[in-house]
Design a protein around this nucleic acid. Structure first.
Length: 712
DNA sequence: AGCACGCCGACT
DNA sequence: GTCGGCGTGCTC
């Protein structure tokens, strides 16, 4: 179909197209929308990403561009269009129905691919090209990576509009700062090299194992400054608002005021959009924020940084659940910029980046690590058995002694597992998990009565006996933060006890002696460092039936322990856990990278992620079976299961994304070797799209998730 | 998701 | 004949 020249009936070029299609059927159809309205002379067709759920995965819809919108209807702008079956009702010359909905103008083209008649753009909401070519490319790559829809990813990437913020004018960006000296980066092998490469416009990729202590935030700020010095922009993503504030302060100190933006979801809509616009318009060249900031439209990006990639906050909680580390990897590759993954600990994925050669390792020499880390002492089962005091007081005497001694010189941190995090009960003697006799689900102690019951089927267990060794005693009672605080308060009556947890998080504590009871992730920073830390109930953190249990436990211990003074300054950590366990040994030796490398080797042997790529397909048994039959998987794909999905998480809480109440779902895992991840995602997306298209004839939905988080 | 279209049975 | 059931398919 060719474009008509606009001579006699110029205003109606596209209407002619309509007529040629319609001629056979309807006598005449000239929609009111176009009557008298001229169309844009150049590129009169707009491709629009319509924001309308998952119904049409990644399809663009074409609209005619009226002349008066020609100038503003540029790629990337938000538009409003009529959409819906009602707009097809043109027989009597009326064009009604089909409400106005939002969308993004993706591109302008000369000719429509769509064979039918086009409707006109109703409105350009604002001329701000929020979804420009770069961001479109990134969001599409993320959607492809996760077998998700482009519209879903765009929703994560572009914050809601706020007109007042848009009307503001933004000052031009300040001149680049001078290149920094390496400073405390000199403590790391290849640290100075990294800063030098950033400052001179290079694009190094590094996995950085940070030394314990609070310096990491300043070190990130220094890396950002180096990237800015090269005339480029920089982006830092941290897991929590609290850490964002810390890096924010470090950036302020390094760059001075007004040189960077803080992008967090907790700011109000107006502020959030204003900051985002300041970045988009190039007024601000450095950004720190929480996970949504991973899409921040930084101009001429020179460096992306992700801090503590093991923190679960880095997984978005909206479909398709992209992970900050993965998205920033994509950005580093697409925008040819530097990539810095920093952590006190080390994930298997980070180890994999180094192992594969994609990134280089930046770490301190052993003796530097030993000097900076606290001394770590373990209390294992044998110690506990010999320790009658521990029985009575629920705290081993080593811990008492260390705490008493440390309280002379400063605060002591006590880390206790969060309630609800605590997993299944285990046999006192052989530590085998206690399982339900009927369904093999995890046994739990009922909160109110203390009675034993299955976390899956609810069956009560009156007379448990270990299936492995015949033992009849269970180890269980994890003491909650409040109870621990009370007991410690009685034991040290002269010392103030403070708690930091879910409901109230303390940011800092002073150098004065105090007992600080905290759940993981909520540990306050102590000025000058804690004199000691007690990591209680270590076994509970390790008992989770999760592939990541060891890595996660180590990460939490290291995070808490790194707030403690160095060994030289007398800092001590006591951990109540078996000294033979791998993560415990890694803590004692302060070797998170070694731990991750060993875990990685195990995963490779079992063909588990990240050495393979996995996707989960869940739904009713029939839906999963139908889906698996229809999907055209790559030849090297392997299907595991399906198996029933428990609708409660360990601990009894309804897990997010659980099947609708009353339905019992199944889940299959699909696994492919490295290199076939893209093909897998593509196949899943195709099958899902085909399914959506005829979701009417009683077709039940399936949920597809690439990189499922809870493989156990 | 809505909403219209279309191909079947009960009605004025 | 025609009104209206809901199963099917489309939305530029």
């Amino acid at each position: 179909m060719s474009r008509q020249d606009d001579s006699a009936d110029g205003p109606e070029q596209l209407a002619l197209i309509r007529e040629s299609v319609r001629k056979a059927k309807a006598p005449k159809a000239k929609p009111r929308t176009w009557r008298g309205a001229a169309l844009a002379k150049e590129l009169p067709v707009a491709r629009v990403l319509v924001d309308k759920g998952v119904l049409h995965l990644d399809r663009y819809f074409e609209y005619a561009v009226p002349q008066e919108l020609d100038a503003e209807a540029q790629p990337g702008v938000r538009v409003r269009v009529r959409f819906g079956a009602g707009s097809k009702n043109v027989r009597d010359g009326r064009r009604e129905g089909g409400g106005l909905i939002d969308g993004f103008l993706v591109e302008r083209v000369a000719e429509a691919e769509y064979q039918g008649p086009l409707a006109a753009l109703a409105q350009v909401v604002s001329p701000e090209p929020v979804l420009d070519a770069e961001l479109l490319g990134l969001t599409r790559a993320v959607a492809d990576r996760y077998a998700g829809s482009l519209a879903d990813v765009v929703q994560l990437a572009v914050p809601p509009r706020h007109a007042r913020a848009e009307a503001r004018t933004f000052p031009p960006a300040a001149e680049p700062p001078a290149a920094p000296e390496p400073g405390s980066w000199a403590r790391y092998e290849r640290g100075a090299e990294l800063i030098g490469a950033l400052a001179s416009g290079g694009a190094p990729r590094a996995v950085w194992t940070a030394l314990p202590g609070p310096e990491w935030a300043g070190e990130i700020a220094l890396a950002v400054r180096a990237a800015l010095a090269s005339g480029r922009g920089a982006l830092v993503v941290v897991p929590t608002v609290r850490l964002a504030a810390r890096v924010d302060a470090a950036l302020e100190a390094e760059l001075g005021p007004g040189r960077h933006a803080l992008l967090t979801a907790d700011a109000g809509q107006q502020k959030r959009y204003a900051e985002w616009l300041a970045v988009r318009r190039g007024s601000v060249r450095a950004v720190v924020g929480t996970r949504a900031a991973m899409f921040a439209p930084v101009r001429d990006l020179g460096l992306v940084v992700v801090w503590d990639d093991g923190d679960a906050h880095h997984s978005d909680d909206h479909a398709p659940f992209p992970h900050v580390r993965e998205v920033l990897e994509l950005r580093a590759a697409r925008e040819r910029c530097a990539f810095l993954l920093g952590s006190l600990s080390c994930t298997v994925e980070a180890a994999q980046l180094v192992r594969s050669g994609w990134a280089g390792a930046v770490a301190a020499p052993r003796d530097e690590v030993r000097r900076a880390a606290p001394r770590v002492r373990t209390v294992g089962d044998q110690d506990l058995a010999r320790d009658e005091a521990a029985r009575a007081a629920r705290l081993p005497s080593v811990a008492w002694d260390v705490a008493r001694e440390a309280l002379r010189s400063g605060p002591v941190l006590i880390q206790v597992p969060r309630r609800g995090y605590v997993p299944r009960l285990a046999c006192q003697t052989c530590r085998a998990p206690a399982r339900c006799r009927r369904c093999a689900g995890p046994l739990e102690a009922r909160e109110a009565s203390g009675a034993l019951a299955c976390g899956w089927c609810g069956r009560e267990e009156g007379a448990w006996q270990c299936a492995e060794c015949g033992g009849v005693r269970l180890r269980a009672q994890v003491v909650g933060a409040r109870r621990t605080a009370e007991e410690l308060g009685r034991a040290f009556p002269a010392v103030p006890v403070r708690t930091s947890g879910r409901e109230q998080v303390l940011d800092t504590v002073s150098t004065a002696p105090a007992l600080v009871v905290s759940t993981p992730g909520a540990e306050p920073v102590a000025e000058g460092g804690y004199a000691a830390a007690l990591l209680l109930d270590g076994w509970a953190m390790l008992g989770r039936p999760d592939l990541r249990a060891g890595e996660e436990a180590l990460r939490r211990w290291i995070t808490a322990s790194s707030l403690v003074r160095s060994q030289e300054a007398g800092g001590t950590v006591v951990i109540v856990a078996e000294p033979t366990l791998r993560p415990v040994q890694a803590l004692v030796r302060w070797d998170p990278t070694g731990h991750a490398l060993r875990e990685l080797a195990d995963r490779a042997e079992l063909a588990f992620p990240p050495v393979s790529r996995m996707a989960a397909v869940s739904g009713t048994p029939r839906a999963v079976a139908d889906f698996l039959r229809a999907v055209e998987l790559p030849g090297d794909a392997e299907v595991l299961g399906p198996v029933p999905v428990p609708d409660t998480a360990p601990g009894g809480a309804r897990r997010p994304g659980a099947p609708p109440p009353g339905e019992h779902w199944q889940r299959a895992l699909v696994r492919v070797p490295p290199g076939s991840g893209t093909a897998l995602a593509h196949a899943l997306k195709q099958a899902q799209a085909a399914r959506m298209a005829r979701t009417r004839g009683g077709v039940e939905p399936v949920r597809v998730r690439v990189d499922p988080p809870d493989i156990g």
